[in-house]
Computed example of a mutant assay.
Amino acid sequence: MTAFTILAAAAPDPVIPDFGQAGDCVSDNGFFCVDWFTANWSSVFWPALLEHVRLTVIAVGVGFVLAFAAALLAHFKGWLEAPFGGLSAFLYTIPPLALFELLVPGTGVSILTVEIALVAYTLMVLFKSTLSGLREVPADVRRVGEGMGLTRTQILLRIELPLAVPSILAGLRVTTVTTISTVEIAAFIIDQGLGSPILQGLQSPFTTQFVAAGALAVALALAADGLIVAVGRLLSPWAAIPREN
């Protein structure tokens, strides 16, 4: 029996919400009622969207700092790659609901529980993409830097990191979109984010709430992905130049 089935069985008989002077679309339970959506934007969807963004930004931000630092250390000290990479890969394989349940006894039903799990899911992709980007810098380019008298730190900051930007941002794109999706599942633990109206919509025959919240989550993922792509083009314009054969 799935979690959705359990929730549906435990919930009272679903009733289409009464919003006063409901339009024909709400009365007829249309697929998407624009008037109901706009009337409830400020009270239901906008707060949920802001919570979703906040949960995502915190998780991706903390995960990026941890993974980036670990990748830099592994770049200089190769022995760190195996333990950190293995741990992050192991955490990535745990289903989200299972990880939430494992954390609850220690951190309670709280935002901290959700954020620890979300951060754990960001580490593997961010770590591997950052380390791969640093290691893919041609050795000849490093030798040119050494010939110019640059120190190892200067080579990292002026040569390796700029050339690794496309790979780092590629991992960031995957991680951000994945985190936005996982935050929806976090509604089983905390009543925040777009997952909350989605779960409420699943327990009701009124489809607008479910459809609207789901569409907002998709739109958020597309917007975040587009923003990262735009930032990548600003930071590494040469990456978009086609190579000649």
Rank of each mutant, 00 (worst) to 15 (best):
L73H: 08
L49T: 11
T56C: 03
H75T: 04
H75N: 14
G86S: 14
M124Q: 14
F100P: 09
T107K: 09
L102D: 05
T56R: 04
F64S: 12
T56M: 04
F45Q: 11
P95F: 00
A89S: 12
A120T: 13
G85V: 08
H52G: 04
V62G: 06
F127S: 01
V65I: 06
G63M: 07
F100W: 04
F127D: 07
F64A: 14
A39C: 00
L123M: 08
F76K: 15
L91C: 07
V62A: 07
T113S: 05
H52V: 02
I94T: 05
L99C: 08
L73A: 14
L50E: 04
T122N: 10
A70G: 08
F76R: 15
I94M: 03
F84K: 02
A67T: 06
L126F: 00
L80K: 10
A117H: 02
L55P: 05
G106C: 08
S110Y: 01
S88R: 02
V57C: 03
S43E: 10
A74S: 12
Y92K: 10
G106V: 12
A98G: 11
P47K: 05
I58R: 04
F64I: 06
P95C: 00
A98D: 03
V44D: 03
L118P: 09
I116A: 09
E101D: 14
A70K: 05
F68Q: 05
I94Y: 06
F68C: 02
A69W: 09
I111Y: 10
L123D: 02
L91N: 04
E51C: 02
L97K: 15
V114Y: 04
V44S: 08
S42A: 15
F84C: 09
S43I: 12
G85D: 02
S110R: 03
S43H: 11
S42M: 15
L72T: 00
L103A: 13
L55E: 02
T113H: 00
G78Q: 07
P96C: 06
A117D: 06
T107M: 13
T93N: 04
L55N: 01
T113L: 02
A39H: 05
T93Q: 00
W41P: 00
T93E: 00
S42Q: 15
V60L: 05
L49A: 05
V125N: 13
F64T: 13
N40M: 13
A98Q: 07
V44Y: 03
L126D: 00
W79C: 12
F76C: 11
L97W: 10
M124R: 08
L126K: 03
V114T: 14
F100A: 05
S42K: 13
P47Q: 11
V125A: 09
L87V: 12
P105K: 12
F100R: 11
G61L: 00
P105L: 08
S88F: 13
P96T: 12
A59T: 01
L97H: 12
S42N: 13
V109I: 14
Y92C: 07
L80W: 13
T107S: 13
W41Y: 13
T113I: 10
G106N: 12
L80S: 11
G61H: 00
F68K: 08
H52C: 01
W41V: 07
G78C: 08
H75Q: 11
F64E: 04
E115C: 05
S88N: 10
L126V: 00
L72R: 01
P96R: 01
A117Q: 12
